[in-house]
Computed example of a mutant assay.
Amino acid sequence: MNNVVQLNASYFVAPQLSESDLALLKEQGFERIINNRPEGESDDQPAGDVIRTAAESLGMEYVANPIDLSKLSQEQVEAQEQAISEEKKTLAFCRTGTRSSVLWVLMENGNGQDASDLVSYVSGKGFDLSRCSAAMAPLLKP
């Protein structure tokens, strides 16, 4: 798995994981997996319970916080923030990593960082958040 992107010291994002990815992620020191992908989004997507079982069998924490950008809410941002309140090396994933990046931007912005700087930073990491701006706008802090 070579498409993991680090956003800060303990928060990383990636596209869809498979059960077979988890052993390598554990070897790389990941302690927590956050699934930001809704169930049944595509036919080739493994069920969240399959990922959960594999992660937990390796001693990793698993959190489900599914995100549909058309229904993005402050509660989902807070759920993500709560999930990472205890600092552990965390990998958040969705179909492409974009939604997991959106949540990171919103969390960091909520903690006082400038939204445009955060979006630029994430864009520099390969995630174009322009298509997410309408969903993010109501939740961004000035």
Results as ranks from 00 to 15, higher is better:
residue 1 M to Q: 13
residue 3 N to P: 03
residue 5 V to N: 02
residue 5 V to R: 04
residue 7 L to D: 03
residue 9 A to C: 05
residue 9 A to K: 14
residue 10 S to L: 12
residue 12 F to I: 10
residue 15 P to K: 06
residue 22 L to M: 00
residue 23 A to H: 10
residue 23 A to Q: 15
residue 23 A to M: 11
residue 24 L to M: 12
residue 25 L to C: 00
residue 29 G to C: 00
residue 30 F to P: 01
residue 31 E to T: 02
residue 31 E to N: 03
residue 31 E to F: 06
residue 33 I to P: 00
residue 35 N to L: 00
residue 37 R to K: 04
residue 38 P to M: 12
residue 38 P to T: 02
residue 41 E to A: 15
residue 42 S to A: 15
residue 42 S to F: 08
residue 44 D to A: 09
residue 45 Q to C: 00
residue 46 P to R: 02
residue 46 P to I: 03
residue 47 A to M: 09
residue 49 D to T: 15
residue 49 D to K: 05
residue 50 V to H: 10
residue 51 I to N: 01
residue 52 R to H: 06
residue 53 T to K: 12
residue 53 T to P: 02
residue 54 A to T: 12
residue 59 G to Q: 13
residue 59 G to L: 03
residue 62 Y to N: 05
residue 64 A to G: 14
residue 64 A to Q: 11
residue 64 A to M: 11
residue 64 A to T: 07
residue 71 K to T: 15
residue 71 K to V: 13
residue 72 L to R: 00
residue 74 Q to R: 14
residue 77 V to M: 08
residue 77 V to I: 11
residue 78 E to C: 11
residue 79 A to V: 08
residue 80 Q to P: 07
residue 82 Q to S: 14
residue 82 Q to A: 14
residue 82 Q to V: 12
residue 85 S to K: 15
residue 87 E to A: 13
residue 88 K to L: 15
residue 89 K to Q: 05
residue 89 K to D: 01
residue 95 R to F: 12
residue 97 G to H: 10
residue 97 G to D: 11
residue 99 R to S: 10
residue 104 W to P: 01
residue 105 V to C: 12
residue 105 V to N: 13
residue 105 V to A: 13
residue 106 L to K: 06
residue 108 E to Y: 07
residue 108 E to Q: 15
residue 110 G to T: 14
residue 111 N to L: 13
residue 112 G to W: 01
residue 117 D to S: 15
residue 120 S to L: 10
residue 121 Y to T: 09
residue 123 S to W: 11
residue 124 G to Y: 01
residue 125 K to H: 13
residue 129 L to S: 14
residue 131 R to N: 13
residue 132 C to H: 13
residue 140 L to I: 05
residue 141 K to S: 11
residue 142 P to Y: 03
residue 142 P to Q: 08
